[in-house]
Amino acid sequence: MKPFISTSTYGFLNYVVAITLMASPWLFGFSHVGGASLFLPLIFGWLQLIMAIFSKHKFGFMNVFPVSMHCFIDVVGGSFLMASPFVYGYSSHVFLPQLLLGGLVFFLGIFTKQSPFTDAPEHVFGDGLTTSTSDVDEPMAH
């Protein structure tokens, strides 16, 4: 499937998702539960914000991380966030915000242009580093 989310839209949505994740315990009223249900969205929100600031897209300030690396981390992190209520056992108290926000991060990571999951990989070395270092074509002595 072709990626359809531009990197500039992705960059903007990263900030929105990061702030929403950090505020989600209070926005959705589960801050009283505490533990992993409180700290995982906060930690993942901060991670999203830091990656958005350092990514190479229109809204990135530092332009250090390639977008493909950010997308890969989003897919892994989004999967973890979706599974966390069930893995850490707080799904009886709250699970929908993590499931939806984790799914959104996962979706953005897969369908953004330059994503390693939908675009052909860019090879830095065209020959795959298969060149010989010796000028002599002699068989090796055993």
Rank of each mutant, 00 (worst) to 15 (best):
L40H: 03
G128T: 11
T20V: 15
S92H: 14
F59M: 08
L40E: 06
D137G: 04
F86E: 00
F117W: 09
Y10W: 05
L47A: 10
G126S: 06
T133D: 10
P66R: 05
H32A: 15
F95V: 06
L38N: 09
L13G: 05
W46Y: 12
Y88C: 06
L21M: 09
A141I: 07
L38I: 10
P85N: 12
G89T: 08
T7P: 00
V75I: 13
L42V: 02
V67G: 00
F44Y: 12
F44D: 04
Y10I: 00
G60P: 03
L108Q: 11
V94M: 07
I110G: 13
K56I: 02
V67A: 05
S91T: 01
T133F: 13
M22L: 09
V33E: 03
P85R: 07
T130C: 07
T133V: 08
H70Q: 14
G11K: 10
G128I: 03
V64G: 00
F65M: 04
F39H: 10
F65R: 01
M22K: 04
L99E: 04
S132C: 15
L38R: 05
V94Q: 04
E138T: 14
K2Q: 15
V105M: 13
C71A: 15
S31D: 15
V136D: 06
G60F: 08
L104S: 14
G102A: 08
C71I: 12
S79R: 01
A141T: 05
D74V: 08
F125I: 10
K56W: 01
L49Q: 00
I19D: 01
F117V: 06
V87P: 05
F111W: 08
F107L: 11
P3A: 15
L96N: 00
Q114I: 03
S92R: 08
S115D: 06
D135A: 06
W26P: 01
A52R: 02
D74C: 15
G128Q: 04
S115Y: 02
T7D: 10
G77V: 04
M82G: 00
E122M: 03
L81Y: 07
G77N: 12
S31A: 15
G35W: 12
A120Y: 08
G34C: 12
A141D: 08
T118E: 02
P121F: 11
G78T: 11
H32W: 15
F61N: 02
F95Q: 04
L27N: 01
F4T: 11
Q114M: 12
H142A: 04
H57M: 09
A23M: 01
Y90N: 08
T131F: 11
P121M: 08
D119A: 04
H142V: 02
H123D: 11
Y88H: 09
T7V: 12
V67T: 05
H93W: 06
K56T: 05
T133Y: 14
V33A: 06
S8T: 12
I73H: 13
S84F: 01
K58E: 12
P66T: 11
L47F: 11
P66G: 00
S115Q: 03
M1W: 09
A23Q: 01
Y15N: 09
S134Q: 11
D135G: 09
G29P: 01
C71N: 13
K2E: 15
S134A: 14
G35C: 14
L81F: 14
V76N: 09
